[in-house]
């Protein structure tokens, strides 16, 4: 089932959470709303669910205008960051809630709950109370509960945000597999670009209440529409006045045509990755990332002179002329730390 979001605007007092946002979500896709915290992505999701009302604009779910419909009539399943488990009901009753509300026959409810608990691998926990489950289990229960009513669309608001890194990774893979099984149109909100790139078919980058870009993970990574998208999706550095990714910077031991000379300022090994910082005269330091093997071949140390050039087929874009050298320097600085862990 498709979702059409047209010209949605939402303000909280003076704060513009969403500014004339229009997005279409393809039926059966797994879409990530990606962006920094406070950028409006959660608000957008809640407006689609009917948990929040837009100041203006329209939402259509499966071709039906849902702008004025209350949440219980939109056919959406919603999963909250903090699970929103019903603590006074067993896991099975939690999952059955939507079916009970619809007064479905008892046998049908029991069969459906069993099926869903199997799907989320919680069949042996049916009679537990949510308080006895771990965070990851609770979130899987919440997912089963949302799926029970066969929603037209499944909406997840930072579904893994409250979980620790390992469980998070597991649930990510599991959500991807689940979606391949269930095929329900799914939209999830995340501020973690790795999560979006890994799980989603389609990514909508939202920032400052606006849609920055819509596309597949590869589209976005390979041809970002703006400096913001490029730097949000992964680490960036500056080479010859252009914004590039550190792994697209080639380090050479000899001068070639079109290369820039620089002096190695720092070498940091993290597992199989080597992060090299190169000082270039008249420009901010450049960050480059090599594999361990490439570093060994090159055999550079701090103080050595190297030549830098852009790898073939690299993604690059002109840095905005507006950014002063100061900004660029700061940008490059943050890249060096940014290369250690992907920007959040």
């Amino acid at each position: 089932m498709s979702i059409e979001i047209r010209n949605i605007t939402k303000t909280f007092g003076d704060f513009v959470a969403l500014d004339d946002v229009s997005v279409g979500i393809r039926p059966g896709s797994l879409t990530a709303l990606l962006g920094p915290s406070g950028g409006g992505k959660s608000t957008l999701l809640r407006i689609v669910a009917g948990l929040e009302t837009a100041d203006s604009g329209a939402v259509a779910i499966d071709g039906v205008d849902a702008t004025r419909l209350p949440p219980q009539r939109r056919g959406v399943g919603f999963v909250f960051q903090h699970y929103a488990a019903f603590p006074h009901m067993t896991v099975a009753r939690n999952v059955a809630f939507g079916l009970d509300i619809r007064h479905r026959p008892k046998d049908e409810v029991r069969a459906r709950v069993e099926e869903l608990l199997r799907l989320v691998h919680l069949e042996q926990f049916a009679d537990r109370m949510p308080g006895q489950l771990s965070g990851g289990q609770r979130q899987r229960m919440a997912l089963a509960r949302a799926l029970a009513v066969e929603p037209a669309v499944l909406l997840l608001d930072e579904p893994f945000g409250a979980l620790d890194a390992k469980v998070r990774k597991e649930l990510r893979d599991w959500l991807r597999r689940l979606h391949d099984q269930v095929h329900v149109t799914t939209v999830f909100v995340t501020h973690d670009q790795e999560e979006a790139l890994e799980v989603a078919d389609e990514i909508v980058v939202v920032s400052n209440g606006r849609v920055e870009q819509v596309g597949s993970p590869d589209d976005l990574y390979d041809s970002p529409a703006s400096e913001f998208v490029m730097s949000f999706l992964g680490p960036v550095t500056m080479l010859g006045g252009r914004l590039v990714r550190p792994h697209d910077v080639e380090l050479l031991g000899i001068a070639v045509v079109g290369s820039v000379a620089g002096v190695v300022e720092g070498v940091q090994r993290v597992g199989n990755e080597a992060r090299i910082q190169v000082g270039v005269p008249g420009a901010p330091s450049v960050a480059a990332v090599l594999t361990r093997a490439a570093l060994r071949d090159l055999d550079v140390r701090v103080g050595d002179t190297v030549w830098l050039r852009l790898a073939k087929g690299a993604t690059s874009m002109a840095a905005t002329p507006a950014s002063s050298p100061d900004d660029a320097a700061r940008g490059a600085g943050s890249v060096l730390t940014g290369a250690v862990s992907a920007p959040r």
């Binding site: 009917g50 948990l51 399943g77 919603f78």
Partner: peptide, 9 residues
């Protein structure tokens, strides 16, 4: 809100 989205009035 979860209950509302699950169809409860």
């Amino acid at each position: 809100q979860a209950a509302r989205s699950l169809g409860a009035g």
